[in-house]
Design a protein around this nucleic acid. Structure first.
Lengths: 238, 238
DNA sequence: CCTTGAATATCGGTG
DNA sequence: CACCGATGTTCAAGG
C-alpha cells in the first residue's frame, strides 16, 4: 500500500512487463488521463481504479457509474515509465488508432494477479430466444400462423420472422426485447413495403412484438394500418 | 491476501457494511454468478474481479474484454453473507428489477477503499462538435449553403442541421460520427418527410454526413431520392 | 416521469 | 475484413 514511484515501477517490471498477456494490473491512485483517438478527452486529477486486462483492454473507473470514464480497446499495448517523479502509463492501439496516457500523482495501491477463467456466460431471454420461442410455437402470435423464414434479407434490412397467417396473407414480424420506439415501427413499415414489392402482393401484414409498445408507437402503427401485438415473453430458465 | 471466508466477512462488515455509499469494494476470487432481471444468466466458476462502486454499481470483470460479464446498475443494494462455508454476495435493484448473486469458492483478495474524485471528463470530437463545425463553416457541405437551425424538432425527432442550398431548396442534414447504417438513412428519410409536410414543399433535400456510408445505406439513399455526402470531419483539439 | 438518440459505444454473427 | 443489428446496452438531454 502507498508504494512510491520506484517501488511501483519495480513491481510492474518484475511481475507484469514481460508477460502482459498473462497478468492483470490493478492500480489505484490519484491520476490524470489524456486520450486521443476516435475522439479526444481530458480528465483532471482524481482518485480512480485502473485495470489492465490480459487481452490488453484498459479500464479507468471513477467511484461511480457503470461505464469506465476512459478506456482502451482489447489488443492495446501498455507501457510504464517514470517521468519527473511521476509514474506514467501509456497505452496504444492500432486500428482504430487510439492513445491514452495516465499520469499518476499518487499511487495508493498496485496489484498484479493472474486470473484463470474458462467459463462463458450463458444468457437467456434475449431477442433470439424470443424469435426461437415464436418459431417453435407460432400460435403464440395467433391461431394458424406459420413461420416461413427467420432473418430474411430484404432491401432495408433483416426481417426477424416471415410467415403466413391462417388466410395465407404474408406476415412480417419484428421482435423487440425492450420498448418498441417509433423507429421500430418505421423499421417494420419498411420491411412490409419491401415484401409488398418483392412478392407483388397488395396485402402484407406487419406484427410488432415487444414487452411494451408506447402510445406514440401504437398510434403510428394504426395510422399505417399495421396490426400490432404487444406482449411479453418471459425469459426461460435454462 | 487469500483470506478465509470469516476474515473476508469481518473485513467487509467493519469497513463497508455501514457506509456502502462511501467505500468501494474490490474482490478477487473464484466465484459463480447468477443473474435474474431483464434477462437471465449463469456464469460458472472462474477467477474474476468484482467491483462495488460508491453509487451501488456492481461490476464483474473476467480477465478479458472491455465489458463486464455481469453487473448491477447504480442504485443497487448489495449485502454479504456466509452460506455453507461460502461468501455469498447478493445485489438487488428496484426499477428495473434486477438481482445478482455471486457465490465465492475462493477469495484471493478483498480490498476496501475510499476514492475522492470530483473531476469530470472533457470530451471533444463528438457529434455535436461536427455539427458546430458545419454550422460555423456551412460551405463544407457545398457552396452557397446556409444553416437555418440547429437541433430542430420535428414530429419524428430532432434534426441535426436545417438550412437552404444556393437555390433556396430546404435541406435536412443528419450527422453521424461513425458508419452510417440503414437506420441513419431511415432517420433522415423521416425528417425530410416531416419537413415536407410542415412547410408544404415538394422538394426538400436530405444530406447524410458520415465518415463512411456503406453500399446498402447508399442504395437506400438513392432509392428514396436523397443526395448523400460521405465525408470525415477530424475532431478538433480542445 | 417518459422518450429520443449518441457513444472513443462494444460485441457477435454472417458473407 | 466489411457490415449489420442487438445490447440486461448506458447515459444525458429535453419535454
Amino acid at each position: 500500500m502507498n508504494p512510491n514511484v520506484d517501488e511501483a515501477m519495480d513491481f510492474i517490471n518484475k511481475f507484469h512487463k514481460f508477460k502482459p498477456d498473462k497478468t492483470m494490473v490493478l492500480l489505484i491512485g490519484d491520476c490524470m488521463v489524456d486520450y486521443h483517438g476516435r475522439a479526444r478527452s481530458f480528465l483532471d486529477r482524481g482518485e480512480r481504479i485502473i485495470m489492465i486486462k490480459q487481452d490488453g483492454t484498459v479500464l479507468v473507473h471513477q467511484p461511480t457509474m457503470r461505464e469506465p470514464v476512459n478506456w482502451q480497446p482489447s489488443g492495446s499495448i501498455t507501457d510504464f515509465e517514470v517521468n519527473s517523479q511521476h509514474l506514467v502509463m501509456k497505452s496504444r492501439h492500432n486500428r482504430p488508432p487510439e492513445k491514452m496516457k495516465i499520469t499518476f500523482h499518487k499511487i495508493i495501491s498496485v496489484m498484479i494477479c493472474i486470473l484463470r477463467d474458462q467459463a462463458k456466460v450463458i444468457i437467456s431471454g434475449m431477442e433470439t430466444d424470443v424469435v426461437n420461442e415464436i418459431s417453435n410455437n407460432p400460435s403464440i402470435i395467433e391461431d394458424g400462423f406459420r413461420i416461413c423464414k427467420k432473418e430474411m434479407h430484404v432491401k432495408s434490412g433483416l426481417i426477424d420472422l416471415y410467415g403466413y397467417d391462417r388466410d395465407y396473407i404474408p406476415v412480417v414480424i419484428e421482435v423487440k426485447r425492450s420498448i418498441a420506439s417509433i423507429s421500430a415501427v418505421q423499421q417494420l413499415r419498411m420491411y412490409v413495403s419491401d415484401v409488398k414489392k418483392d412478392i407483388e402482393s397488395a396485402s402484407v401484414r406487419g406484427i410488432l412484438c415487444a414487452p411494451r409498445i408506447p402510445e406514440m408507437s401504437r398510434d403510428l402503427l394504426y395510422k399505417i394500418i399495421l396490426i400490432s401485438y404487444s406482449f411479453f415473453v418471459l425469459p426461460k430458465n435454462h
